[in-house]
């Protein structure tokens, strides 16, 4: 009697790793602390993906996110920062999905289509958000004060919280 193989689903697992790699690559080039954080996060994430630990995936992705934020805070360029942050969030989403799918269905089950839909949807949202961010940035440099942006974002967060 062989127990059911409940390791994370392979497709989402690879997607998670690749997203994390892109995230670290995009932000790590601009500052050493950010690179260090990114590599640390990537190792934690990979280990967690291998062992199937949700907490590990979250911690690793969070470290990569902090690295990206550090790049942004130290006057890094906008586009790589946006790519890196999107990558970190996607790595987190894919990793947690892979683990959940593995736990519920195991590796023997056929899950390709479900994973594909999920990966595509999340990537789409990430690209769209980053695009909107870049659009705001381009519009903002056309003379609008940073204050407008700050208030706009703040209002979005508060409204999300209130309506969610």
């Amino acid at each position: 009697m062989t127990p059911i193989d409940r390791r994370p689903a392979p497709l989402s697992r690879w997607a998670s790793f690749l997203a994390a790699l892109v995230a670290v690559g995009a932000s790590g080039l601009y500052s050493y602390p950010s690179l260090a954080l990114g590599v640390l996060g990537l190792s934690i994430l990979s280990l967690a993906l291998w062992r199937g630990s949700n907490a590990g995936v979250t911690t690793g992705a969070f470290a990569i996110f902090l690295g990206a934020l550090l790049t942004g805070a130290w006057a890094g360029p906008v586009v790589p920062t946006l790519v890196s942050i999107t990558g970190a969030v996607l790595a987190w989403d894919f990793g947690v999905s892979a683990i959940g799918l593995g736990a519920q269905l195991g590796r023997e089950a056929e899950t390709g289509r479900l994973e594909g839909v999920h990966l595509a949807a999340s990537t789409g949202i990430g690209v769209a958000s980053a695009g909107i961010g870049y659009g705001l940035y381009s519009a903002g440099t056309g003379g609008q004060p940073v204050a407008a942006l700050i208030f706009l974002l703040l209002s979005a967060v508060l409204l999300l919280y209130a309506l969610g």
Binding site: A73, G76, I125, S129, L160
Partner: peptide
């Protein structure tokens, strides 16, 4: 992602960090 992005972005006045907030808001 949204809150830390906006918080750090406001404090350091860097648009790149501030825009991280947009991605967070998108996913939320």
């Amino acid at each position: 992602v949204a809150l830390l992005g906006i918080g750090v972005g406001i404090l350091v006045k860097q648009p790149a960090a501030l825009l991280a907030g947009v991605i967070g808001i998108g996913f939320a």
